[in-house]
């Protein structure tokens, strides 16, 4: 009788564990939306960073970001956007490479990027100097 009771309790515990929701993942460090390498800051300033959700004909929407930079001198820039879903997992786009851009002194340039999937809810924009 006692064995049956123990076995029953264990089965119930296993069942409940299986039904339990997955524990939430915690980032080890807060992720910044805009990450700029210090070397880049000598040559340019990020003057704008906008985001909006673009409505799509099927009813879904896509995250789009736009940023603007102003160059203090002729400069080369490399930039990349990494996209994340609601759970913080990275969503793949076409490739992982940095996009390069050239800036003339005093020039304002605007760059846009569109999320590769409607489930994207956040992003990280990284600016660096191409070597």
């Amino acid at each position: 009788m006692k064995d049956i009771l123990i076995a029953g309790c264990m089965s119930l515990a296993l069942l409940l564990a299986g039904c339990a929701s997955q524990p939430a993942t915690n980032p080890l460090a807060e992720r910044q939306e805009l990450k700029i390498d210090p070397d880049v800051l000598y040559t340019l300033t990020v003057t704008e960073l906008y985001e909006e959700r673009l409505s799509q004909p099927g009813g879904s929407s896509l995250l789009q970001i736009q940023f603007a930079v102003e160059a203090h001198s002729d400069a080369e820039l490399a930039w990349k956007v990494t996209w994340f879903d609601e759970r913080g997992m990275a969503v793949k786009g076409v490739g992982d490479a940095y996009r390069r851009a050239s800036l003339l002194m005093g020039q304002n340039r605007f760059f846009k990027a569109t999320a590769p999937h409607p489930r994207v809810t956040s992003y990280q924009l990284h600016l660096r100097e191409p070597q």
Binding site: L54, Q56, P57, L62, V94, T114, P116
Partner: peptide, 12 residues
Amino acid sequence: ASEAVDDMLASG
């Protein structure tokens, strides 16, 4: 490819 896909998706 990145620019094409970006633009295709954004245009709807």
